[in-house]
Write a protein that binds this DNA or RNA. Structure first.
Length: 192
DNA sequence: AAGTATACCAACCGCGAGCGC
DNA sequence: GGCGCTCGCGGTTGGTATACT
């Protein structure tokens, strides 16, 4: 059974913070420092729980907070860090001065996750198209069109520039073989 | 202009970890 | 070791603004 969190479910008020509440909170933190949040809430005479005070401070009132307008550079960094760290927002935020974990999480959920999904979808379509091209070359023996076979080197030439090097692979060139090849050498797809 | 859908973001909630008693 | 308190994190909710029909 889940442990009850004494800082939750208090009788404290909820909802948006008023400017007056912000002012009182900042005043108390200036004196006592940003710790012992329950005490801070009491000292400030706020009808808020300590947890709520902490959140307000961390995400809004803390000095040096940057708000809004995430730059392209920052966005790029978020994407790369998310790739590396996953949903570890506080770690990601730690790399972006002035940004809070909550802001980054919100930004990811409202902007970047959609963007990423679109990219993935596009990637998949493009990969499927490439595989279909390969499949046509192999299953239909279709060395017509843009592809040719060089009998001396045993290579498949696709288009003007691309050479599919078969010299290190055994015939027959079938789909099973090809899928194994693709798993091993995804780079090849980029050529087709 | 009014109603509805969607996007955005501040705030809330549940949970786990750390610490002192 | 057990308990209560505090803190921090990540997921989720809900209110408001904006876009769309």
């Amino acid at each position: 059974m889940a442990r009850l969190d004494s800082s939750n479910r208090s009788e404290a008020s909820r909802g948006a913070w008023a400017a007056e509440e912000d002012r009182k909170l900042a005043q108390v933190i200036e004196i006592h420092g940003p710790r012992r949040w329950k005490l801070i809430a009491a000292k400030a005479g706020l009808d808020r729980c300590g947890k709520s005070c902490r959140l307000r401070w961390m995400n809004y009132l803390r000095p040096n907070i940057k708000r809004g307008n995430i730059s392209d550079q920052e966005e790029d960094l978020i994407v790369r860090l998310h790739k590396l760290l996953g949903n570890r927002w506080s770690l990601i935020a730690g790399r972006l001065p002035g940004r809070t974990d909550n802001e980054i999480k919100n930004y990811w959920n409202s902007h970047l996750s959609k963007k990423m999904k679109q990219n993935e979808k596009q990637k998949k379509v493009s990969r499927d198209e490439k595989i279909e091209t390969l499949s046509n070359i192999i299953t239909k023996g279709s060395l017509e069109g843009p592809s040719t076979r060089d009998d001396e080197t045993n290579n498949y030439n696709v288009g003007k520039e691309v050479v599919f090097d078969c010299s290190s692979h055994e015939e027959p060139l079938n789909m099973e073989w090809m899928s194994k090849f693709l798993e091993l050498d995804e780079r090849w797809l980029d050529f087709v």
